[in-house]
Design a protein around this nucleic acid. Structure first.
Lengths: 341, 341
DNA sequence: ACAGCGATGGGTAACGTTACCCATTTCTTG
DNA sequence: CAAGAAATGGGTAACGTTACCCATCGCTGT
């Protein structure tokens, strides 16, 4: 590691026999540079292999960086979102950097601060646990988009899918098949303030509401674990212990549904013969033939792309607040069928 | 977005009635500050909610940032690595930022440059496609650790698992069960220069070598797709078209194995009755009871933690080059058994 | 009492880039 | 052809932090 000094704008200027100001103008496509000078400077840039120093730029304004807060990296649905975002940002000069938030509120705050300290030009927060007031505070500092929360705000843009509709699709589907004893796997609440805004709350509340609407209020059974394979497994074992045994499980996320399938199988029961299982997110695993999990598709790629577009618009100066909502669709597969008997 | 000016070191200095130098000393725990002054300054920092401006620090040296290059985000094995890394870095003042490399060499180069431009203090490159010479060039600029490549270098530290041993475990296992017609699913090469260094090459070559050693050179059948569900699915359909039909498939990664399971199932065949399937990485999905995929465990958490430790050591000044290799173990499950007949 | 030392605090010049100016030169237009 | 406008180029002061220096003070030991 022979810390060789980086090529700077001054080196380029010297090499092209112009001022540093001139080089800066060319870099920024700013007014006041003749075509001839542009060519000279660009040639010098290529010859010396100059690359702008992001930190120095940050001192004076733009960093050309979009920061993403990701709760964790295991959920493949987030990968879809990132794909959409990357596609949107790829053609611009902006670069996406990701910071993992971890499971708790404290880690998440640290992650957001890290992004703010690094002066990103815009921040996309995916399903953040942070309180609304704190989100507003972040959005006061820099352009922000929040994905997956159902609050209205004038400070940031919001992208979400209609979780209420999506969850109702699943529950209605199961009830339509003839199920009555339907369990639900939800996620433990780690957020601060009222729960209502996050997907897991909405899906759970919708489950409860639809069950009641069909006169199945007494059959409501919720296991609150986490939306991971382990969480789904543990939650399902908990639900299976009930008597009389339920005939269907609506896991709030595919990841949890996979764990549910494992637990059902381990208990010597068959899917969908004994128990139907449905998930949410329509991940690629769900589509595989030997799993064939009924799920809800919410097009993460479009959500990510839209979030990117909104963020870039804000960076360019828009201040009016926008909300974009995706309408989910049910994707029935072989993991759900009429109940036994 | 009311771009409120950030609190700076000067604000803190004024508030505490000391010089900016003094504040800087306190922040860095540098020599030349009395306990009394330290307390005053710290109080001012808390009161004003001061946070150091990373870009300004970058101009003068440290950014307290560790950059990670990730090929893509879908492989859950990478999540284990990140967990290990995060755990190692969490107690320090450093922050991990991730940049996704994308599938191609060009995107990867852009991603690495983005990290270099942002002056990260150290960089962890996970299974990079870049040529060895370019890796060395990066490592000349900043402390670097490369994970998952099997080259020796004096410029950077290396962390890997012994892919050759791991792959041989699987193939020997299948042969030991009585299989002869064993197929393999590999990944298309996107790197530059000689292939030998990346896991997919080594696993494939090992498969070929072990087959030959057992006199099964004529039975070698490789489908080269990608290590994703789709890749495994397509590759398996390709392999299943052969006649006589093979009795086992060694997918180079669990993700591909899941796709393989789907394809086998779709073809009306059973696992392991008709065909045995094995993967690599021992992801959580593989452990689930209804999948029970035979796989190879390579402890990504330890790999990530070690990579973090090595990187921090290098940031602190170590220059001697280190290699750390994990020994993988076979995890036999129900997806592999003796061949039919 | 005094040289010499450690402890304490601050002044200042960078780091690389850009926004805002001003000084030329060249082009229009009546 | 004069006068104003447009085009072209450069000088310079920040942005927030830190490394390196110097100045002062109170003690110590002789």
């Amino acid at each position: 590691m022979v810390t060789r000094r980086r090529v700077t704008i001054a080196d380029v200027a010297r090499h092209a026999q112009v001022s540093t100001t001139a080089v800066s103008k060319v870099l920024r496509n700013a007014y006041g540079a003749s075509p001839a000078m542009r060519d000279r400077v660009r040639a010098a840039i290529d010859e010396l292999g100059y690359r702008p120093h992001a930190a120095a730029r940050a001192m004076r304004g733009r960093t050309f960086t979009i920061g993403v807060l990701l709760p964790h990296i295991r959920n493949p649905f987030f990968a879809d979102i990132l794909d959409g975002l990357s596609a949107q940002v790829a053609e611009t000069d902006y670069q996406v950097i990701i910071v993992a938030g971890g499971a708790g509120l404290k880690e998440e705050v640290r992650a957001i601060e890290a992004l703010v300290d690094r002066q990103v030009d815009g921040i996309l927060m995916i399903a953040p646990l942070t309180s609304r007031a704190d989100l507003d505070k972040v959005a006061e500092t820099m352009p922000a988009v929040v994905l997956g929360r159902h609050e209205k705000s004038t400070a940031y843009d919001a992208v979400d899918d209609d979780d209420e509709y999506g969850a109702s699709l699943v529950v209605e589907h199961l009830i339509g098949l003839g199920h009555r004893r339907i369990g639900h796997i939800s996620q433990k609440d780690a957020s601060r303030g009222r729960r209502a805004a996050l997907p897991y709350s909405i899906r759970e509340e919708t489950y409860t509401r639809v069950m009641r609407e069909h006169g199945l209020g007494d059959e409501i059974a919720v296991a609150t674990t986490s939306w991971t394979e382990e969480g789904g497994y543990i939650g399902t074992r908990e639900l299976l212990a009930r008597s009389p045994r339920l005939t269907a499980i609506f896991a709030g996320a595919d990841q949890a549904a996979f764990g549910a399938l494992a637990a059902v199988h381990e208990a010597g029961l068959s899917v969908p013969g004994d128990i139907s299982v449905a998930g949410y997110d329509n991940t690629r695993m769900a589509a595989l033939d030997h799993i064939a999990l009924t799920s809800v598709d919410q097009d993460g790629v479009v959500m990510g792309r839209t979030a990117g577009r909104l963020l870039l618009e804000r960076v360019e100066g828009r201040t009016a607040s926008v909300r974009f909502s995706v309408t989910p669709t049910l994707v029935p597969r072989r993991s759900t069928a009429a109940p036994p008997g």
